[in-house]
Design a protein around this nucleic acid. Structure first.
Lengths: 253, 253
DNA sequence: ATTTGACATTGACGTAGCGTCAACGTTTCT
DNA sequence: AGAAACGTTGACGCTACGTCAATGTCAAAT
């Protein structure tokens, strides 16, 4: 039998057969005078066995270990391992499909949005035009949104809801404007302390609680992100938030 | 933000970030005077979005197509496609686990066998010692065994059962010996025709039916394999089987 | 002032299991 | 005899990065 016949017989490509030769899975058969490989029945048997194991999902390395004979691994052990692996894969895929279903349900409502439905609703109601700081704020929200699960997003949406009343929106606009104006100011500018105080008054209670809850570094990192992200704000703006958190903490006590 | 901070923030490696740059998934940010990449908040947002899609199982190519904006593909369409793909994967894995369970159950009974339990039982009962042709025969059985499903194997085991009686075994031994003896003979040796006739008498009825059922080439290839495998037999032995099939066919009519 | 350590840069190789040329020789059919 | 269909070895390509390697930059410890 030549390589093409063998391959057709077992249902693989000639490339596959030669690949198994190079890996040592299938021993090289005798060569004819012209250099062609000449296969016997036992090669077909072995190749078919290799394929059967491969189609079960064993890696070629594992197959090599199993078919190596005495000093190889026990087939049973490998199969059990494989079954456990497949079970894990099933779980992973099932979880993915669940998340996919959620995403698709969201997309049904908000077709062309890069963020979740909850956040999209908030962003729609929150002002953004004209303020550089508002843009940063939205970006931060979008960032935490991508990493959040449904529960967290619902909490945040709840927290942010008080900010969408007409009065809160007006005050929010003003505060964004004042933050923008601090762009070039120094951290000791008198407007800094005033703005921090006004911000403290503007924030919903729940939000203040959430911010101070994780303000000590031992907790999770959700609000620590705020620090990391402060790379993009000016010193004066950063000072506003330092004062703000300090005020909230004092108020808490 | 420098690349390490960005990577830690989103939870990927710096290598991954640079990889996305090279693929064009993530735009290259400004460089500092020292050549370091300087990231902004929006880069983190985009990177987090990419990761969310990647963790769902989208390929980076697909993510590129989705995030490409206007001329890209619709996210919804891609997600539906992905879901269908995951569903297929689930089916494949479930089928594998079923076959694995069968294999494991077999291994429970026949721990160190390379063939199925059914065939192992047959091979145990069938004689093999000393005959080259018997070895070939066993190899052929092993070959079709690897490709067979449970139903087919049960059928074959049933077909082969009549051969395991003491009298059949004795006749089988003799027939194997006579086949071996034909090794160097020509196809027109007088013993050829005689052996073909005796073989026809030896074969169980069901087996003869199975052999002739697929003797015309329009059918499946299970018995056509026999032809392919005849590479390993001598001309005289091949002639025996040609005559055998012809006799069985005539008898059938 | 220097050494160390932690960061950054680009470039290249390795991974699994083959598919797919390329460049060439052999067999077989017409 | 020419073409089609096989065989040979060798090499690159594919995914999504991990993992050096060789080198540069920056802050802190000596």
């Amino acid at each position: 039998m030549r390589i093409g016949e063998l391959a057709a017989l077992v249902g693989v490509s000639t490339r596959t057969v030669r690949h198994y030769h190079r890996l040592g899975l299938l021993p090289e058969p005798e060569r004819l005078h012209n250099g062609y490989r000449e296969y016997r029945l036992r090669d077909a048997v072995l190749l078919a066995r290799i394929r059967r194991l491969a189609e079960l999902g064993l890696s070629l390395d594992e197959i090599g270990a199993v078919t190596a004979g005495d000093r190889g691994r026990e087939l049973r052990e490998v199969l059990l391992e494989l079954d456990a692996d497949l079970a894990r894969q099933q779980e992973v895929i099932a979880a993915r499909r669940e998340r996919l279903a959620l995403l698709l349900a969201e997309a049904e409502v908000h077709p062309d949005s890069a963020v979740s439905a909850e956040l999209a609703a908030v962003l729609r109601d929150l002002p953004a035009e004209g303020s550089e700081f508002a843009r940063l704020d939205r970006e931060m929200l979008a960032l935490v949104d991508t990493a959040a699960d449904a529960r967290q997003r619902a909490e945040w949406a709840e927290m942010l809801k008080p900010l969408t009343t007409p009065e809160a929106l007006a005050r929010g606009h003003e505060l964004y404007r004042r933050l923008d104006e601090l762009g070039e100011a120094g951290p000791d500018d008198p407007r800094v302390a005033a703005l921090a105080a006004d911000l403290a008054g503007h924030l919903p209670e729940e939000m203040a609680a959430a911010m101070t809850a994780n303000a000590d570094p031992s907790e999770e990192r959700s609000w620590q992100w705020l620090e990391e992200l402060s790379v993009e704000v000016t010193p004066a703006q950063a000072e506003v938030f330092r004062l703000l958190v300090a005020a909230l903490l004092k108020e808490k006590k």
